[in-house]
Design a protein around this nucleic acid. Sequence first.
RNA 1: UGCCCGAUGGUGUAACUGGCAACACGUCUGAUUUUGGUUCAGAAGAGUCUAGGUUCGAGCCCUAGUCGGGCAACCA
Length: 683
Amino acid sequence: MAEDVKSINFLEQLIEEDLANGLSPDKLRFRFPPEPNGYLHIGHAASICLNFGLGEKYNAPVNLRFDDTNPTKEEQEYVDAIKYDVEWLGFKWDKVCYSSDYFQQLYDWAVELIKKGKAYVDGQSAAAMAEQKGTPTTPGVASPHRGQSVEENLDLFERMKNGEFEAGRYVLRAKIDMASPNMLMRDPLLYRIVNKAHHRTGNDWCIYPMYDWAHGESDYIEQISHSLCTLEFKPHRELYDWFLDQIYEDTKLRPKQREFARRNLSYTVMSKRKLLALVQTKTVAGWDDPRMPTISGLRRRGYTPESIRKFSELSGISKRDSVTDVSLLEFCIREDLNKTATRVMGVLDPVKLVITNYPEDKEEMLIAENNPEDPNGGTHEVPFSRELYIEREDFKEEAGNKFFRLTIGNEVRLKSAYIIKGESVVKDAAGNITEIHCTCDPDSRSGSGTEASMRKVKGTLHWVSIKHAVKVEVREYDRLFLDEAPDSHGDKDFMDFVNPDSLKIIKEAYVEPFLKEAKLDDKFQFQRLGYFTLDKDATSDHLIFNKTVGLRDTWAKQQSKPEQQNDHPAAKPAQSQQQEQRSAINEIQKISKKYTNLSGDKLASARASIMNLAEGVSYEELQPLFNTAAKKVGTRIGVMITLGVLLNKGLVRNSEIDAFIEAGLNDANELLASEAKTIEAIK
RNA sequence: UGCCCGAUGGUGUAACUGGCAACACGUCUGAUUUUGGUUCAGAAGAGUCUAGGUUCGAGCCCUAGUCGGGCAACCA
């Protein structure tokens, strides 16, 4: 059996290296460090799955640590929600920790820093300090308080702690380097005064540590071996290490900060600030609105923990900014639900179907499979009668032979029931179809084993018996934004791209009575439509179903094709002359590269394309390519062909051109030599 | 104008210490199917941002450039 060569990401490689260099496996420890100031989203899920996944892989403990150093933004409510989400995803933490647990230790260390002359209290305004900080391109200047005596610093810092000053009056700063190219090293703040009760420490403190001071030291206290964060913290690493240097004792493990790219999802936004804006502007109903990319939103929408973990696994970890297509997320949830969801029938856009040869008072219970993917999934009963609802779009009075559904004179199967044949329609005064009349083949009942029941028909429809149907509300969701990356447009606000039709509420949908028993976390497949789950707003006499995701629909895709084609010509406005030229030379380079790999027709057509594109190329663009390395024959051939076109158009030869042709003539490659020869002939 | 990252099919990730680019999603065929789903078989699509260089050989190494992102909160 071939080994499963599962590649490991760069962080796992680092861990493997550390292990190989003598790090004891039992020293491995990770942490997931959310700030309790908002709800977790699918981007956090990447970090959760990474850290807890590493914990599982290396059998190492993982702490859930709340980075709660800013009482103005953080609340207990968020702590609870975050814990719930992490558990729901299926992960087990070793300890729940809080940065606030370390406030005393952090304070003590800060005092030591002051004593060592590595920190000072600054009483300037925030604006003045920002001014002194300089800019990324100009060095900063020292604060007038930088040289303050240790005694004075100690005194002021203690009084800060004792609450003698109003908020913002003083800060404690590390004394590092005001000229560092890294702005974060220009005497960063360690503490500020905040007169606000903390959700855990109450009014014990009125000074609070900043992120950089708290985070690395918390890692050290907890003996986290690998502290993984997102890319924007890369510049913080230098400071992280500087702070660690001040307190590190070599009997202990020294944590390492490493960075990975945050995960973006197409057609949505992922920052807490932007998600909050959606909530506050009532664009969505709340943090757990099923259109939100929050864990709670996805849960309410019907996503499973397995699907989200799978998504994280498939997305991978890397160091480059990227936008993962939602189609991957959708694939993950379909894959999971296909295996597990109970099959039922529901009609969202009903039209009445009357089976004229079925007795008016007859009712029968038919057997429906719960899940064809699961042989042990069992069955349930579905009531059948003379009058049914079917989907309006499943009927056309007449249609081409690519329409597999019900038409007049054609047969289709009613899922788990009989084969029927369309006979006639009843319309209202406006010409709308109000009833479809059909006849059924009484011998064709599903599972009856008769010859008629085995007959192949082109289509199968879902349906629900009117007399037994349960009226329910169904909510269908579309992407929240019309743009793939709504927050990537510098000139436009992401809110400009909100999809006005992201929520469709169907007040009168009908489902089979089996669904009366549905419970909150149950997952269903409404056959031929998609996956649905009960919304938390549902009550026993008013069921509400959320559509998690539709089934793949190749029929809908085919239907929309002609439209797309019509859209195309108008979609691309004429490019500017310059752009065309630039892309022409680029295009030539691209084609040329693989030129020597081609032969026969392909070669001829590549040559023709180059000649065509050459019309849009200027000598100024072409000339630099004369220097193309001799071994890059393809490119040189392309350049030669292009040159030929230009010469034919009247370009005057010069010494550069002569030299290029000369070199081509003498080249070992026959294609190049022959192109050069052709051109040589042009006067 | 400084510093730090990054650049591989439409998208996301691979390619062990250099050995002519793989997997998944998506797309397109065909078969099977009592879900136009699932499953199965197959196809198209990148020669790795550009230009030099090192090497028998470069997506991996070196140099220069281009493009994209981050950095000047008493936020994390």
